[in-house]
Design a protein around this nucleic acid. Structure first.
Lengths: 108, 108
DNA sequence: TATAAATATTGACAATTATCAATATTATTT
DNA sequence: AAATAATATTGATAATTGTCAATATTTATA
């Protein structure tokens, strides 16, 4: 496995390392929500929410759709599932994983 | 769901947000490894590895066993599986999740 | 006891980031 | 055109962190 792979996965986990963003993901995993609705559930300023939404969008964990003055956000399940799959490989002891040579050896 | 839950999960993801630690987890998911063996696969100093192992241990993602001058590390699958389970709940749209009220409403 | 090997700790530094207030932008409504 | 509402951006700050060199600690061995 390449360093780049660990970096990519690490970047997604970094996005997920903030409790506010985790709660946002929990919210938008149900349905599309506009920023002002999300904000009602949180105890942060509007600018802070906007920052978090930008981070979530840049990671592709969340997608957005604009409607008039509203921005609607929803969870991107493809990216989430891909991350889960890659994390499963990292934490598994099968040879179908990233540290291929080592784990193949281990299976003997 | 309580803020504390998001914080706890966030802390684990923060530990997983470093590419070096992800590679270490990949390594020890196969078999118990001593620090000096892990170090062979990485391009970091010994003190940096020691720091990362401390972080991993404190998160309980990794456990350690001392044998003479060697410290052997292995992945704690219970903690990993628990994290996966909780992340599944956050990212699912079922009512069996953390934002219970909202998601129940959504299901109607 | 002295040396060597494995690991841990300390101290320092550069880089990143979560947060807010203030301001800007965009789109709707009056 | 002016006012309002929703969202984004800017600038600043406090806090965290990954890294290394140097040093300390622990254990085995000569």
């Amino acid at each position: 496995m390449k360093d780049k792979d660990y970096k990519d996965i690490g970047k997604l986990f970094k996005v997920l390392s903030d409790p506010v963003r985790l709660q946002i993901i929990d919210l938008v995993s149900c349905k599309e929500m506009c920023a002002c609705e999300i904000l009602e559930y949180l105890s942060i300023s509007q600018s802070t929410l906007s920052h978090h939404m930008k981070v979530l969008k840049e990671s592709n964990l969340v997608t957005s759709r604009k409607d008039a003055t509203w921005m609607y956000y929803s969870l991107c399940n493809d990216v989430v599932n891909s991350l889960k799959s890659r994390f499963n490989k990292i934490t598994s002891d099968t040879s179908d994983c990233f540290c291929y040579t080592i784990k193949k050896e281990c299976k003997k």
